[in-house]
């Protein structure tokens, strides 16, 4: 991908709140989370992915992109960036979200990883079907 900063932000917000949200709604009932608080946990996770992404991570990734001659962001980087992003979301959730029982690391990882992969595969190709001009505009939708 060859995103501009605003392209990164728009793509993240759009994909998190469409593909990410859809997948989360489907997956949540099957996760081992406290009854009655399942959606509270997963939707808060999704919210932090969007918020921390826009405020913290995208500026960092975009800065690192400046050191690349091609001003691109290889597909593999998009996968690897999930690791630090997941760690930060987990830390923030631990400190801000109170639940009846603690959220297991495995459960968090399953939700985060599968959601990230769903978004990843969507932006690698299918995203271009509804948004023909998206790839020529540095990832901007609007």
């Amino acid at each position: 991908m060859t995103s501009t900063y605003f392209g990164r932000v728009q793509t993240r917000l759009f994909t998190v709140f469409t593909i990410g949200l859809l997948w989360t709604l489907v997956l949540t009932p099957f996760l081992s989370l406290p009854a009655g608080e399942k959606y509270k946990v997963t939707l808060t996770t999704l919210g932090w992915v969007a918020l921390l992404g826009v405020v913290v991570w995208e500026p960092i990734w975009h800065l690192l992109q400046q050191f690349r001659w091609e001003k691109d962001w290889p597909a593999m980087y998009l996968l690897l960036q999930a690791v630090p992003e997941a760690v930060l979301v987990r830390v923030v959730l631990d400190r801000t979200l109170t639940t009846a029982a603690p959220v297991g690391t495995g459960t968090f990882a399953l939700h985060f990883a599968t959601t990230w992969l769903a978004i990843y595969f969507f932006v690698q190709g299918p995203m271009r079907v509804p948004f023909l001009r998206w790839r020529f505009r540095g990832g901007r939708i609007l």
């Binding site: 060859t2 995103s3 501009t4 091609e70 001003k71 691109d72 540095g138």
Partner: peptide, 17 residues
């Protein structure tokens, strides 16, 4: 060295802009 004839972002990224 360069992957393609132009830097990748010239087709739709920072360099295109």
């Amino acid at each position: 060295y360069q992957g393609f004839n132009w830097p990748k972002s010239t087709w739709g990224g920072q360099d295109r802009n």
